[in-house]
Every structure is written in C-alpha cells, then in structure tokens.
Design a binder for these strands. Sequence first.
DNA 1: GCAAAAGTGTTTGAGGTACACCCATGC
DNA 2: GCATGGGTGTACCTCAAACACTTTTGC
Lengths: 214, 214
Amino acid sequence: MPYTYDHPHPAVTVDVVVFAISDGRLAVVLIRRAQWPHAGKWAIPGGFVGIDESLKRAAWRELREETGLKAGHLEQLGAFGRPDRDPRERVITVVYISLAAVDRLRLEAGSDAADAKLFFVDELPELAFDHARILGHAVERLRDRLDTQGVVQRLMPQSFTLTELQRACESISGAPTDKRNFRKKLRALDAVEPTGEVRRDGPHRPAQLYRAKR
Amino acid sequence: MPYTYDHPHPAVTVDVVVFAISDGRLAVVLIRRAQWPHAGKWAIPGGFVGIDESLKRAAWRELREETGLKAGHLEQLGAFGRPDRDPRERVITVVYISLAAVDRLRLEAGSDAADAKLFFVDELPELAFDHARILGHAVERLRDRLDTQGVVQRLMPQSFTLTELQRACESISGAPTDKRNFRKKLRALDAVEPTGEVRRDGPHRPAQLYRAKR
DNA sequence: GCAAAAGTGTTTGAGGTACACCCATGC
DNA sequence: GCATGGGTGTACCTCAAACACTTTTGC
C-alpha cells in the first residue's frame, strides 16, 4: 500500500538514550540490531514515528517495544539529520533522554532487537549509524543538566550508601569530589534521609543506607 | 512527479528564530505569511528541508530566502512535531536559534513572505501554527544560555554605551541589574573596551562608547 | 594488629549583592 | 538652576574548595 507525495519526504525516527548507574558507573541501554543495515552492531533503541503519533509518544512506544522498559520522564536532546546517516533512505531522528534506576531495570529483548543490554559509557562497543556521536551529545547534555538532586531522585536505587551516591555523581560529572564537601552539600540540599539500615560488605566499618527524601 | 513510500512519511521543515536587540529590547524576526494556511499571520521564517540537505544547511538557506539574512552561528533548539500542528499534512519542524546585531540586520521580504519585520518579544502579534509556543521555548533557552559575554559579542552593534549593553542584558534575563555591579562584572570579564568616542543624546552627561574586545 | 572504607569541621578565597552620591550636559 | 542620565567604590554574605584524622569492621 503505497503513500505518495508531490515532493520527497525524509523518514523520521525517534531514539531513546536510557541512562542508568550500574556498579557506580554511568551506563546506557543498547540493543543489538538484528537486521540490515548494521546487523549485529549495537544501537540506541528507537524506530519510526507513526504518522499520527507525537514524537514523545513514539519515543515511549519504541523504547517499550524494543527493551520492555516504560520510560518515566523523557527529555528531548534534539534532531540529528545528516543526509547520509542511514543507507536505506534519508532519515531524520529525534533523540530523547531518559533516566532509570538500575533496580527498576528489567531488560527484555523485543522483536526488532536480538538483545538489549546495559553498557558503561566509557566502554562502548562499536555502534550503528551515527549513534556514537549522538551518545556523545547525550552524555554532554547529562553533564550540563543533571545535578545531585536529580541523580538522587532519578538514578539511584531505593536505598544506597552516600559513597555510592558520590560515585554516581562523579561518574556523570567526570570529576572527583571531596567526601566532606559532598556530604555538606547533601545536608544543604536536604535530599536524602537515613533508612536506619546499614550495609556490611567488607573488612571495614558498615555504611549507613539512605533513601531519597519526599 | 510523485514520490512514493511503503509507509507514510511526515514532512520535515526547519524554522529559524533570529533574535536581535532593538531599542534596548529583545526582538525577533518574523515574516508575514502570504499563503494558506494562516495567510496574513506572522510566522517564524522557515521551510521544507531538501532531501539531500543537512538540517542546519536548510535552516541557513530558508532564512536567507525568506528574509535576506545570512545567519552566523545556528544553534538547534529542538524538534516540534505534534500531529496536528499543520493542517496540510503531518509536519515535524526542527527549530534553530540565531543571534544578529541590529546594525547588520537588513530585512528583505523573500518570495514566500509578504513581509519580514522585527517584533519585540513582549509585543508579539498573533502567530501562525504553534509558533508562539516555539518562541516561548526559544526565549527560555536564550535566558538559560546567553551570558553577558555572548550578548556583547553577538547581539550588540559595533559601538554602544554601557547603559545600552545593560538594558540588553536585562531585557534577556528579565531582571533589573545594579549599575555598579554590572560594570564591575564587565571589568572582570574584560569583554569591552572604550572606543574613545562619546555619544551626546540629551540633557545630560555624554556616554562613553565601547566596542567588544578581541 | 592491620588493612580498608566510613564518617566528621574548619578555614579561606572568590564572586555576587546591596547600597548613595557627584558629574556633565541641554534647556 | 534644574532635570536627566552617566559614572564611580565599599561592606557584607554566600558558596565552593582545600584539607586530616578517628571509627568500625573482617581477617
């Protein structure tokens, strides 16, 4: 069933960069492509926008179809549209960013994807299309925008230690932080509260567990 | 000559929000639409993306065709694509922001536009499509991103008084500033230098003229 | 007892904010 | 001489950065 226009139209896709903190490091959800082009390579989950579907809704749907994830807040990163970025036809993609707490992440490979998996952003495999460039921009955006408050409320699991939180913030900002200054800022932010539980995980003093406040 | 696809494709346009400072106030370039839809209403200049043309290049070309302006730096604001934003067909638009010094602004109406004109952002006419919403986002982005340095180098004319510069910054940030604090910051920034000329324009002490440094 | 991470305050410097008066001009 | 905008400096406060030792545990 063909669709006809009197001037050429590009295809429009949406892609969703899902960030999470795994093992104290910034990570991203990728799917392995099953089909040409770039079959076997890893890619940012996404797909074509329905003709009567908003961009954000398409992003939510595609993420769910390809990874099983239900995105919370989706923030638009921007549009990427170099003429040669897809060998099939002219494709313009609108990229969204989503944040997920690792303990809510249950990845299931969808029909379009052979596999879905978390990768550390500093250990990425070879990526399909211009997805390496897109991910670079996404990480940059994250660095610029995400503050400690945001990390606590959107990336950390239900309970965590202050050192884990600090590692997460450092892996996003890329810079090491002083422990006492970090905790002083947390006090000022009033963003976390102790759960009362502790975590014992080695030959050292147990760590108090915290949760996001409110 | 028809173009056919096996699934429906949206049309993709680019729009360019050109900001300038006019009379000390933040202003934007709009064109009056000549044709349906929204004939007679004012709109952000823009048009369809060529099938082998990058988004930024399309933005530059459309701005030139519709207003005669050659954009300097173009920053992408994002994509807007609600399904019902254009009555002709599904249209997804990618919006760019450009800054222009008023003394370089020579507006010429192009073929697609009955007229091109500067409007103060706080005295906008009724706008076509969802352009009011887009402009709102563009102004917000400008407020978030543009610092004094950027205003000096990209929005001010070749020579200007410090009060004019302060008015410009205030009209972008939306907040009044203390004159002495503003000038102290300018000294710290090392962004302007006196031209040696003065401007006489009323029953008061003449103002020293400055230019952007470097 | 020793290795390993948890936890805890003070000092300093930079930058931002608040604030009031004299100056040069046109009329 | 008066109305109008141009031009100038100080005091305070807030926030970020630097910095070292004690505590609790497993082995």
